[in-house]
């Protein structure tokens, strides 16, 4: 296995997992849309149990990076490896099964299905049920559904949503829809979870709860988290490493403290000081 990003590096976060291979690596990743270069020369590595942040002004190409990592967009240049395996030529669902899960900036739930069924769709590949038992409801159907219900309820109760299991997902309040999307992503049993603006539209107390939940996810499931967020309080509080994008290029990488004092970051967000 060739390592694309030498560790320990300043890639993003080799803090606690410096000795282990990273879970996600990208090497000189880039994509062009027609003549426009949306992302260029993106080299990242994320440790197995790290919380990383991807920040930058609007239009910097953050969501494009998520779409590249999950193979929704095919990269024009560069490579991506998840757990040491390249994702090139794989479909979106195959990449997901390699151990990567995500949420979306604009919530994408199965809104006509119940909360528990949303989670069970996430559990899909861990449910042991053949087409024959799907059609007949025999041959181990009952057991497989009971196991799935149990695991779904366990996940829901970890996030205090068990009481909502039978409600339609589309009828939930905004904050709970966001939480359900994270639960559904976790149900796929990922090695890394990508959160696209998880705190968007939340009030300070909801954001505080979200931060707590992100930490709990990492600690309980021992997985990596990479998040895009505009709420600097959240990013600086929970991220162990941060990568700043501007106009599709990485302008800074480092710990929250390093990022806070980096003049290039300040310039990207606030503009250049006139002399």
């Amino acid at each position: 296995m060739t390592k694309m990003v030498p560790l320990p590096s300043k890639a993003i976060i080799p803090e606690r997992d410096a000795q282990k291979d990273p879970i996600l690596e990208t090497h000189r990743l880039g994509i062009d849309f027609g003549g426009l270069t949306a992302v260029d020369e993106l080299t990242l590595a994320i440790g197995r149990t790290e919380i990383g942040g991807l920040i930058g002004p609007n239009g910097a190409g953050k969501t494009t990076v998520f779409n590249l990592i999950t193979n929704v967009y095919k990269p024009t240049r560069g490579d991506i490896m998840i757990d040491g395996k390249p994702t090139g030529g794989k479909s979106v669902s195959q990449v997901s099964r390699m151990g990567i899960a995500r949420t979306f900036q604009n919530i994408r739930l199965f809104s006509d299905m119940t909360v528990i069924d949303n989670v069970k769709v996430g559990l899909h590949y861990s449910i042991n049920q053949s087409l024959l038992s799907s059609v007949t409801h025999l041959f181990g159907y009952k057991k497989s559904e009971r196991d799935a219900d149990e695991r779904a309820l366990e996940l829901l109760s970890f996030f205090n949503m068990k009481h909502l299991a039978r409600f339609k997902a589309g009828s939930l309040p905004y904050g709970e829809q966001r939480r359900l999307e994270i639960i559904r992503a976790l149900a796929t049993n990922p090695k890394i979870i990508l959160l696209d603006e998880p705190a968007a539209g939340m009030n300070p107390s909801e954001t505080a709860e979200l931060m707590e939940n992100i930490r709990r996810i990492r600690d309980k499931y021992q997985i990596a988290v990479l998040l895009i967020e505009h709420d600097m309080n959240l990013v600086m509080n929970i991220c162990e490493g941060i990568c700043v994008l501007d106009h599709g290029k990485v302008i800074a990488k480092g710990t929250p403290d390093e990022i806070k004092s980096d003049p290039k970051v300040i310039e990207a967000y606030l503009g250049k000081k006139e002399d």
Binding site: S96, R102, R108, F110, D112, R184, T188
Partner: peptide, 10 residues
């Protein structure tokens, strides 16, 4: 209900 989300969970 949501093709993109379905793909994203594999």
């Amino acid at each position: 209900d949501n093709r993109i989300a379905a793909e994203s969970v594999g």
